[in-house]
Design a protein around this nucleic acid. Structure first.
Lengths: 148, 148
DNA sequence: CTACATGGTCAAGCTGCTTGACCATCGCGT
DNA sequence: ACGCGATGGTCAAGCAGCTTGACCATGTAG
């Protein structure tokens, strides 16, 4: 494969990711959840199952724990999350989503489904499924870098 | 398609894009081009063919022209670009890549080819090509948002 | 019980972006 | 030819999000 082809593929991937991010963000805003930036979405994803500590979140986002703490401050102030004492470690606090936080998570899922649904119209359901599987195979593990 | 599937696909796409961005960035640094952030890559892509004005660049990057101007300042200071008088408009300046700027562009292409080549090992050349075509079809036009 | 490691916060500073103001030039209408 | 709004670009100030550094509370190994 020539370098220019690799560049074209990269550009397409980055454009698709940027577009999707924007679509999800707009969809979330349209559903009435304001004051959030796309970076918050990655935090929601980490908090969603059972909550997490600030340090967990920092590792997941690839930022310092101070930055993660500020992000949590913001989410708490806006009613999306709350800090609870950690059941097993008195030093730590478990950050969990509030009801509104869960509502917002569902709104993001709906917005994502909307955007992905349009891909289905363009490529066909089957191809979209294949696309997802391929992306899963090439996606790296490790922290999600919310910034370029 | 269920919302959770759409979310999984979105996460995979974003992770793949983030990983690729990081890989390219690391590859560029490893080839001796320092002091650049991933955002510069999008600027290089716009400047590469025939140069562009600051305003063109601002639209392409989705930022204010002041921010684009600062970005150009930085690239000029580091020897990757230069401002030339615009041949048709005395108000405007045409920002073009220097020799070093072109070298850096080629380094980015090599790094991208390296990363995409690994996908070929995982998925097969043919599948990667299909992946590229699909991504092109779902990638939005318009400005490239270099930040989430 | 001491000593070091870990979770978390407070405070200060930096960087990249924004808004606002301004100047030079273009190009259209008269 | 001239006047005037539109456009390209820069300067300056402010802000938001992140970083580093210092610190305290609690956990854990010896």
């Amino acid at each position: 494969m020539q370098n220019s082809e690799a560049m074209a593929l990269s550009a397409a991937l980055l454009a698709a990711a940027g577009g999707l991010t924007q679509r999800i963000h707009e969809g979330v805003v349209a559903r009435g959840f304001e004051g959030l930036r796309p970076a918050h979405g990655f935090a929601f994803a980490r908090l969603a199952p059972d909550g997490a500590t600030v340090t967990d979140l920092a590792v997941h986002l690839g930022v310092t724990k101070q930055a993660a703490s500020q992000l949590v401050d913001e989410m708490v102030r806006k009613g999306y999350a709350e800090r609870r004492p950690h059941p097993e470690d008195a030093r730590a606090r478990l950050v969990v989503l509030t009801g509104r936080g869960w509502d917002c998570t569902r709104a993001a899922e709906e917005a994502a489904a909307e955007a992905v649904g349009e891909w289905g119209d363009l490529l066909g359901e089957r191809e979209v499924r294949v696309l997802g599987e391929q992306l899963l195979r090439i996606a790296p593990r490790g922290p999600v870098r919310p910034a370029w």
